[in-house]
Write a protein that binds this DNA or RNA. Structure first.
Length: 520
RNA sequence: GGUCUGUUCAUCUAAGGGUUAGGAUUCAAGAUUUUCAUUCUUGCCAUAGGGGUUCGAAUCCCCUACAGACUACCA
């Protein structure tokens, strides 16, 4: 009985728990989505929990709507949150601004134990020191080598310090970085990494506005929320020693989470990490959902609005930095969960390839059922003012989806099922519309009128016979007829088009082409 | 500048001391489609450079180059 209980407790203690901890400073970038995804996949592969924690400790950077955006984006991607601001959970609240009161006690604990100290230097003073150092080609750091000459509880007398504190002088709490200490980490992605604390500075843990910085809040919350694995972007690697030292200072080293640092997502061309501008310049979204900047009113496009399917989008992201070690490329979310492991995450940054994204979307488009796609296409159709029976939309979708990359392209590839062409492709006109073609088209219209049954096979056969009897060139006829019906040289089988738009419309399109293109 | 991390076809990547360095995307050619797209076939294309270690190196070590991240009272 007792052993069973212990076993149970141990199991509970070992339950994998990860968190995605964005700051609500704007829309989620695809790099952020991938971080969330890898956290989610890792958690679910191991039967663990995925938490969402909102890191809104910087009040100056808070952007209204960003938090809701993050949640909506994760939902669209199919990433399900086990604990979070909306889902609640045993460690609520999940918004750091709502946990504000909690952190000062931890900061105090560090001061009491000598791991941290008060600093009274103003931002202006520090800025001045930085620019002065820069002017002589050096870098100012608030560290072991400089702290004695600055305004803090280590340099000031106890009495002076207390006076300042009781007078309410603005101050921050800084971590007292130990001297010449090697801090080692075994990163699940990068392997063994080590740092010397002499190269590190005394980071601010608690700001003068009463809010903790990322470093303090992050460590405290990860501990309190029983996070077992921290999976985050590579940009955090340099702060690993600080975080490890914080766990030690709190006496939490035994339960410290394991770290994994994901490689960056790079620009498709040129140098640097992927940014919003790359998307604008090259014509692809960098955000999962469209985003309207509440200040400027600028709208950034989103994968969802651009007609990407969430599972294809997720599949594409999963392959950026991770691979299964097999030649399989198409993965459903469940398959990803099944195959995912941090060991197979690469160390080097991946260039983002918009072409591959399109390819993935095409793969998913042809795999989705016609009904489902037609449902997704319906809003686009409505926007065009087209109102037709759903089964027709389904049929058209099935006919054109193979030639589409995106849901919205169903319109480009199949608008002529719903509406007569308004323009005719100039190139095709000059290539096909000559030498008595208009007369042939007129004869074909008459011929169509003689047919008894109007369906693709029963149009095709007599039509072929008719053309053969006339001794006309098939290529010319088929392409010219296509020009009349769709306005160009594309689209599915011509007889399917005839059947679907109907006899009357077919005749009418031939007539209007004759009228508008003339008899040459 | 300093610290840390990385570097295999144009791109995403496989190969963890022994393979003609494999796959996918893009691109090109051909076939199919009386159109376009799809599909199929074929082709092009890579171990950053230099030193070691070893019978043997993409793989281990060193140097160089290049790239990136960090170096805020931002996360």
């Amino acid at each position: 009985m007792i052993t069973l209980n212990l076993k149970y407790i141990k199991m509970m203690a070992q339950k994998i728990r990860v968190r995605f901890a964005p700051s609500p400073t704007g829309p989620l970038h695809i790099g952020g989505v991938r971080t969330a995804l890898f956290n989610y996949l890792f958690a679910k592969h191991n039967g663990g929990d995925f938490l969402l924690r909102i890191e809104d400790t910087d009040q100056t950077r808070y952007v209204p709507g960003a938090e809701a955006y993050i949640m909506e984006a994760l939902e669209w991607c199919g990433i399900k949150i086990d604990e979070g601001p909306l889902e609640r959970g045993p460690h609520a609240p999940y918004r750091q601004s709502e946990r504000k009161e909690l952190y000062s006690a931890y900061a105090q604990q560090l001061i009491d134990s000598g791991h941290a100290y008060y600093a009274f230097d103003t931002a202006e003073e520090l800025d001045a020191l930085r620019t002065r150092a820069e002017s002589v080609g050096e870098t100012f750091t608030y560290s072991n080598s400089t702290r004695a000459g600055l305004n803090n509880s280590l340099s000031l007398s106890k009495c002076d310090c207390e006076k300042l504190l009781t007078s309410g002088a603005p101050h921050v709490v800084r971590f007292k970085m130990p001297e010449n200490l090697i801090v080692e980490e075994v990163d699940l992605i990068r392997g063994h990494v080590q740092f010397n604390t002499d190269q590190l500075d005394d980071k601010v843990l608690f700001k003068s506005d009463g809010m903790p910085t990322y470093h303090l809040a992050n460590v405290v919350d990860d501990h309190l929320m029983e996070i077992t694995h921290v999976i985050r972007g590579e940009e955090w690697l340099p702060s690993v020693p600080l975080h490890i030292l914080l766990y030690r200072a709190f006496g939490w080293e035994k339960s410290m989470p394991q770290f994994s640092h994901l490689p960056l997502i790079l620009k498709p061309v040129g140098k640097g990490k992927l940014s919003k501008r790359d998307g604008d310049q090259m014509g692809f979204p960098v955000f999962p959902l469209a985003w309207k900047d509440p200040e400027t009113g600028d709208v950034s496009r989103g994968y969802r609005e651009d007609g990407y399917l969430p599972d294809g989008f997720i599949n594409m992201l999963s392959m950026l930095g991770w691979n299964p070690g097999t030649e399989q490329e198409i993965f459903s979310m469940d398959q990803l969960i099944n195959s995912f492991s941090l060991e197979r995450v690469g160390k080097s940054g991946s260039r983002f390839d918009p072409e591959k994204t399109k390819w993935y979307n095409h793969q998913y488009l042809i795999r989705h059922s016609d009904e489902e796609l037609a449902g997704l296409f319906l809003p686009y159709l409505e926007a065009k003012g087209v109102n037709v029976p759903f089964p027709l939309v389904v049929r058209v979708t099935g006919l054109v989806k193979e030639r589409c990359h995106f849901v919205n392209e169903i319109w480009d590839q199949g608008f002529f099922f719903f509406r007569a062409p308004e323009t005719y492709d100039e190139k095709i006109i000059s290539k096909r519309w000559k030498d008595g073609v208009p007369e042939m088209m007129a004869e074909i219209a008459e011929f169509f009128n003689t047919l008894e049954n109007w369906n693709a096979p029963e149009i095709k056969e007599p039509f072929s016979q008719f053309v053969t009897e006339k001794g006309w060139n098939f290529g010319t006829i088929m392409n010219s007829l296509r020009l009349c019906l769709v306005g160009g040289s594309y689209g599915p089988d011509i007889f399917d088009i005839c059947e679907i738009i109907g006899l009357t419309e077919t005749i009418s399109r031939i007539e209007s082409a004759l009228r508008r293109l003339g008899r040459v």
